[in-house]
């Protein structure tokens, strides 16, 4: 996702301010020519670079931004099934409908909970594991691979794993809770537990990613900072809390943006895990609701409106990050 945004920004940067991306000294020429007549102005640099940026620019523009625009247009009309939309009357009825729909409110709430709980828990678990791995333990690389491995598995596969683990009769989770005298639980079908179970499974899959990001951040901190803190009399806990963790601000920001954007579009895992329930109780988030409305209920316009709102949420998360990166000159 982030990559796609980077690409998009890059593509746009190239088309609009074609001086910025140039490093071959062509900038001044382009600026001067633009001020003069247009036809004489299309510089050789511009024409020469055309074959390189135009195809991806056109493809991105059509398939990504064109599709988003089309989706937006669709959300302004009311079209059921695969009927021909009538664009003569445009309104925001679908959005108003969403705010009056209890299942939309509950899906939005679930999305928010998933967004916050999942991101925070992943960051905390990832940070702790990264610190442990960074303390020059034996088999460090092996541990790192083990923690990161869940990331490489398909969500459909891991969802199936967790379905078995959460199985009421003989799932490992219930076997353990029963052995501990806590009894059995309907982890997936009980609406009160389902979201927690999903968040737990997702943490298992994603904390490895947070760990890798944090580990890179930790590796960038010079050993002298640890040593200076020790000579300064700080305990291990204080050393991490006051000297090391504050220096991981950049890693925290970039990891949380990726995790939050993932949480917004965590469709496949939830669909594979709880897709059997119509509608899923307790685990319905905006993306699963959108797919259900579009392809099961046939409310294409309603689904499009939900999609646009999800898109705006993603922008709201990514935009501040990109601005921050841009200000720091890292973009």
């Amino acid at each position: 996702m982030i990559d796609r945004i980077h690409e998009a920004v890059r593509a746009r940067g190239e088309s609009e301010g074609d001086g910025d991306a140039r490093t071959d000294g062509g900038t001044a020429t382009v600026a001067d020519d633009d001020a003069g007549s247009f036809f004489g102005s299309v510089s050789r640099d511009f024409l020469g670079s055309l074959p390189f940026w135009l195809p991806p620019f056109a493809l991105m523009g059509f398939f990504v931004y064109g599709a988003i625009g089309w989706n937006f247009a669709l959300s302004l009309v009311n079209v059921q099934q695969f009927n021909q939309p009538n664009y003569s009357q445009l309104d925001f009825d679908q959005y108003l409908r969403a705010f009056g729909d209890p299942s939309f409110i509950s899906a939005a709430q679930n999305t928010a909970v998933l967004l916050v709980a999942f991101t925070l828990a992943c960051l905390v678990v990832g940070l702790l594991v990264a610190i442990l791995v960074d303390r020059h333990v034996r088999f460090e690389n092996t541990f790192r691979t083990i923690y990161l491995l869940p990331m490489s598995l398909s969500f459909v596969v891991t969802a199936q794993f967790w379905l078995w683990l959460y199985n009421f009769d003989n799932g490992l989770v219930n076997v353990v809770t029963q052995a501990l005298g806590l009894g059995r639980y309907k982890w997936i079908s009980n609406p009160e537990l389902a979201l927690g179970a999903v968040v737990f499974a997702l943490i298992w899959q994603f904390s490895g990613y947070a760990m890798v990001v944090y580990l890179a951040g930790l590796r960038a901190i010079p050993d002298e900072h640890y040593e200076a803190a020790r000579v300064d009399g700080a305990s291990t806990l204080k050393m991490y809390w006051r000297v090391i963790v504050p220096q991981l601000k950049g890693a925290t920001i970039s990891a949380s943006v990726v995790l939050m954007v993932f949480a917004l579009k965590a469709f496949d895992f939830l669909y594979a895990l709880a897709g059997g329930f119509f509608p899923p109780k307790g685990t319905d988030i905006l993306s699963t609701m959108m797919v259900r409305q579009a392809f099961s209920a046939g409310n294409r316009s309603y689904a499009a409106a939900i999609g646009i709102m999800l898109f705006l949420l993603a922008i709201a998360i990514v935009a501040p990050y990109l601005t921050y990166q841009y200000r720091r000159g890292e973009l």
Binding site: E227, A228, V231, G233, K238
Partner: peptide, 24 residues
Amino acid sequence: MVFQSYALYPHMTVRENMAFGLEE
């Protein structure tokens, strides 16, 4: 100890850097 790379804590001000040892 004074380190070759100085090892000043980048997120703290000079005052905080100097106070850290006494605080801890």
